[in-house]
């Protein structure tokens, strides 16, 4: 019975996923055409000027004219654009020609995920724990004084937390490096994805130490602003569950406080999973800005550089890939959530 309505549910979620990706692609198609002239051509000429190797400029201009097919009717342009995008061809970077933007982004995204994922995981675990503690009936009142502080943090964007953390911990106390993902003189040993099985060997190496040292502050900035949301959500869920009839019944049966508490925690934790997609999305957006503050070489750094150099294909591809990724995460979380929470079923009203 659990799977009743699964295919309808799956269909609607999948359609939403497709619509989101399609919207992102379409926006990328429309936006460059909103500006007068041909912004990409202008960007190419601005970037390389008249002194540069004209063969590069020419091949770029020709490539992009072919890519966009600006002389064709609009609908032909649109369908070619859709076809190119869905076959994975997101174009060349203007500044780093002849590199594909998709390659550049996939390389950088690992750095970003390396900040965003740990931050979200840490915040969700600690936040939920704090929320559970707040809702424990026999907690000293003093603990509740932490709540306003958490609320305060949850109102503040990560980039402001990042600036404050840099100033205090990196500049004043000199505990952490100010910028970057590794020291400027250090040559990191980046493991290609194909060799990730050997990853544990590197966990003690200098690369790992470098990365760890440089990651702590950005991760802290991204985590601290999420903490309040997780904690308050958990506390709210705990209080609701404590008020349910089945909990009163359990109490009447003479269950110990400890058992009651662990029941409540288990029931309250599940809905927190739905918050994960949203938190990840928020952390990723925050991460782009936090990276700009820290001069971190992830997606944020890439976008920052692309904006400065008017490298439009990179900006467009970035937005498309991130939107697709986040929509995918939401889609998967939506699908598995009813499987783990027995109170939710796939059939919607």
């Amino acid at each position: 019975m659990k799977l009743k309505g699964f295919w309808g549910f799956f269909g609607r979620r999948f359609l939403l996923f497709i619509l989101v990706v399609w919207s992102a692609v379409t926006i990328n198609f429309i936006v460059p055409r909103l500006a007068p002239g041909n912004p990409i051509r202008q960007a190419i000429i601005t970037r390389y000027g008249l002194t540069a190797d004209q063969s590069v400029v020419n091949s770029l201009v020709i490539y992009y004219e072919g890519y966009f097919g600006l002389n064709d009717p609009l609908y032909v342009q649109y369908f070619r654009f859709l076809k190119n995008t869905f076959s994975g061809d997101l174009g060349f970077s203007i500044t780093a020609y002849p590199r594909y933007v998709s390659d550049m982004i996939l390389e950088k995204i690992l750095w970003t995920l390396q900040l965003v994922l740990p931050a979200t995981l840490i915040a969700s675990v600690i936040g939920s724990l704090l929320g559970a503690i707040f809702a424990f009936p026999r907690i000293p009142k003093a603990i509740n004084l932490v709540v306003p502080l958490l609320i305060l943090f949850s109102a503040i964007p990560a980039f402001l937390a990042a600036i404050a953390l840099i100033y205090v911990f990196a500049y004043k106390l000199d505990l952490f490096p100010l910028v970057g993902a590794y020291d400027p003189t250090f040559v990191p040993h980046i493991i290609p994805i194909s060799q990730w099985a050997s990853l544990p060997n590197y966990l003690h190496g200098p690369t790992f130490q470098q990365i760890l040292k440089h990651s702590i502050l950005p991760i802290a900035a991204l985590a601290v602003v999420q903490l309040g949301g997780w904690a308050l959500g958990m506390r709210g869920m705990m209080v609701t569950i404590q008020g349910e009839d089945y909990m009163t019944f359990a109490e009447a049966k003479g269950l110990t406080d400890g058992r009651m508490f662990s029941y409540t925690v288990r029931n309250a934790l599940l809905p927190q999973i739905t918050g994960f997609g949203l938190a990840l999305s928020g952390a990723l957006m925050g991460g782009i800005l936090v990276e700009s503050i820290f001069g971190y070489p992830g997606i944020g750094g890439l976008i920052n550089g692309a904006i400065a150099a008017k490298d439009y294909p990179v900006i467009y591809a970035n937005s498309l890939i991130l939107i697709t990724m986040l929509a995918g995460v939401t889609f998967v979380l939506d699908l598995i959530y009813p499987l783990i929470d027995p109170r939710i079923s796939y059939s919607e009203k």
Binding site: V31, I307, Y316, N318, S319, L322
Partner: peptide
Amino acid sequence: IPGFLILIVLAAL
């Protein structure tokens, strides 16, 4: 859709 990403695209142009 995280609107901020689209904002970046629009603002960049």
